[in-house]
């Protein structure tokens, strides 16, 4: 998210991956575990309009710090050292553009011999339509958003030779939607502060980890996310020290300690609305059954109205 504010991101929808991608690089992600139908629907075995052979029509490369079922199923597995995403992407940029580099031919980058990266750079340029699908192994590696910024720069520069795109492997249901909605209503996808009555933005300053670490907030309302599963322990401890309101359809560790627990109808099961896919394609999720409880939308509106009329 932050990275695209510096270099932007060249991307495409998943159907383009399916129909056109002849080179797919899974970088720091393991869709076979975390996004189980991704490869079959969009990115590997699926038959596309211009990749009629499906899996055989694509070259699949996996870059990761450890072997996984995704790396095992790839045509090539490049096992890198943790903390080397930035170096690797930097090197690939130079190799793709044919720039002079400052290391010897027998050197390793990210624990991988230079010639392997040279071959990958050539494969990237030779592809007709390549994509990098990147996951937490990139965004949570040393460097965080700078890794994405550097990958973004690589992707951009490869477009001087061929079509080449990057897609983040976004996790939970509608996290993409939260970026979109915040984007059109506040101008910023994350980390917004309204203390002055208008939106201000500064990740690190106004994002959840920093706010909790510095004890800058004195109450919290958490919606449709389990902080126990997402946040580090000291952040959870900081939440436990302040009044915390929790909207959640299921019992979990957080419902055990939150100051106020409000059960809600699960979205896409007992409440309808819009979800955004990882490639920003919006789809309508449905109400299949009734719930005894209101939806998140209804609860939030009630809270808002209670405050407005107080």
């Amino acid at each position: 998210m932050i990275a695209r504010q510096q270099v932007g991101l060249a991307t495409c929808t998943l159907g383009e991956v399916k129909n056109r991608a002849d080179l797919v690089i899974f970088w720091g992600c393991n869709p076979r575990e975390s996004h189980q139908r991704h490869q079959a629907r969009y990115s590997a075995s699926v038959k596309g309009q211009f990749i009629p052979e499906g899996r055989k029509g694509r070259r699949i490369v996996a870059i990761d710090v450890r072997p996984t079922s995704t790396t095992a199923a790839a045509d090539q597995f490049i096992q890198v050292e943790p903390g080397s995403t930035f170096e690797t992407a930097t090197l690939l940029r130079a190799l793709v553009a044919g720039k002079r580099i400052g290391i010897e031919e027998d050197a390793k980058v990210g624990g991988v011999p230079l010639h392997v990266w040279r071959e990958l750079a050539e494969a990237i340029k030779a592809a007709d339509y390549g994509v990098i699908l990147f996951g937490l192994g990139v965004t949570h590696d040393r460097g965080h958003d700078l890794n994405v910024e550097e990958l973004g720069a690589l992707i951009r520069e490869v477009n001087d030779y061929t079509r080449f795109y990057g897609l983040p492997m976004r996790g939970h249901g509608n996290v993409t939607g939260s970026n979109q909605v915040m984007g059109w209503q506040t101008g910023y996808p994350i980390a917004v502060n309204f203390n002055r009555g208008y939106p201000r933005y500064n990740p690190g300053e106004f994002s959840v980890l920093g706010l909790l670490a510095r004890e800058e907030v004195d109450a919290a309302i958490i919606i449709a996310t389990d902080p126990g599963a997402h946040l580090p322990g000291d952040s959870v401890a900081a939440l436990q020290a302040i009044p915390t309101i929790y909207l959640e359809p299921h019992v979990n560790t957080t419902t055990g300690w939150a100051t106020v627990v409000i059960p809600v109808a699960p979205a896409g099961v007992a409440a309808e609305g819009t979800f955004y896919r990882m490639d920003n394609v919006p789809l309508r999720v449905r109400k299949l059954v009734d719930s005894p409880f209101p939806s998140d939308e209804e609860v939030l509106r009630s809270i808002k109205e209670t405050i407005l009329h107080a």
Binding site: H172, I223, A224
Partner: peptide, 20 residues
Amino acid sequence: PLVYGLSSTTAEAQAEAVEL
């Protein structure tokens, strides 16, 4: 106060959270 989370809910609910 911090309004946080929003990963597994609808855009319509997210919009309410923004206004809150």
